[in-house]
């Protein structure tokens, strides 16, 4: 109904217009009002359509308009302001903290950590797992080393060597068994 030029309208247009907007030309969309009013003057059938819709408009206008007194408006606005005050109170209570209270106590740190973990337990689990795997891979890929033994053990004239498998790819590194060999000097 909105996507056309309204230079001229016929009875069908008037019927469609009044079926939506009623019989009062003041309520009709501006883009088609002038042409519709011209058609009314020239066409008795169109005029009859408008009169019929105006009767329904008259019935609708019998419904009383709600009375909005200034007192009521003030009450609503004051209520909204009071609720703003109520919302601001918790923030105002939290604001005047002393400087020393900004320093977290150990208890606060532990509580914050627990709270962080409770929210991010899955992420923390992944992080811990990834860290452990990294350490394990690091240990396993460490070059062969001769570890000096403690004094008491050294008396037995031995060394402990890690035996490194001759593999370089990650799956092999993870699944190849390692042995710790003790060589007597």
């Amino acid at each position: 109904m909105a996507d056309r030029e309204w230079s001229t309208v016929d009875v069908e247009d008037i019927a469609a217009l009044t079926a939506v907007y009623g019989g009062n030309p003041a309520r009709w969309p501006a883009d088609r009002r002038a042409a519709a009013v011209r058609a009314l003057a020239a066409d008795g059938e169109a005029h009859e359509l408008v009169v019929n819709e105006a009767r329904l408009d008259a019935l609708l206008s019998l419904v009383a308009e709600p009375e909005i007194s200034a007192t009521r408006v003030d009450s609503v606005v004051a209520g909204a302001l009071a609720r703003l005050d109520a919302m601001a109170v918790p923030a105002a209570k939290a604001a005047p903290r002393r400087l020393d209270t900004f320093l977290p106590s150990p208890f606060d740190v532990v509580r914050a950590a627990l709270s962080w973990l409770s929210v991010r337990a899955p992420q923390a689990g992944w992080l811990a797992g990834a860290t452990a795997a990294g350490i394990m891979v690091g240990v396993m890929t460490m070059p062969a080393a001769t570890l000096p033994m403690s004094e008491t053990v050294a008396q037995t004239a031995g060394t402990v060597e890690t035996a490194q498998a001759d593999v370089t790819d990650m799956p092999s590194l993870l699944f190849t068994s390692y042995t710790v060999e003790t060589h007597a000097r």
């Binding site: 009375e67 007194s69 009521r72 003030d74 009450s75 606005v77 004051a78 302001l81 009071a82 005050d85």
Partner: peptide
């Protein structure tokens, strides 16, 4: 029925704002 509406309680600050 506005007679059942409670009397508006407007605090000093709110009244000033209004």
């Amino acid at each position: 029925d506005e007679s059942v509406q409670p009397e508006p309680r407007i605090g000093a600050a709110s009244a000033a704002d209004i």
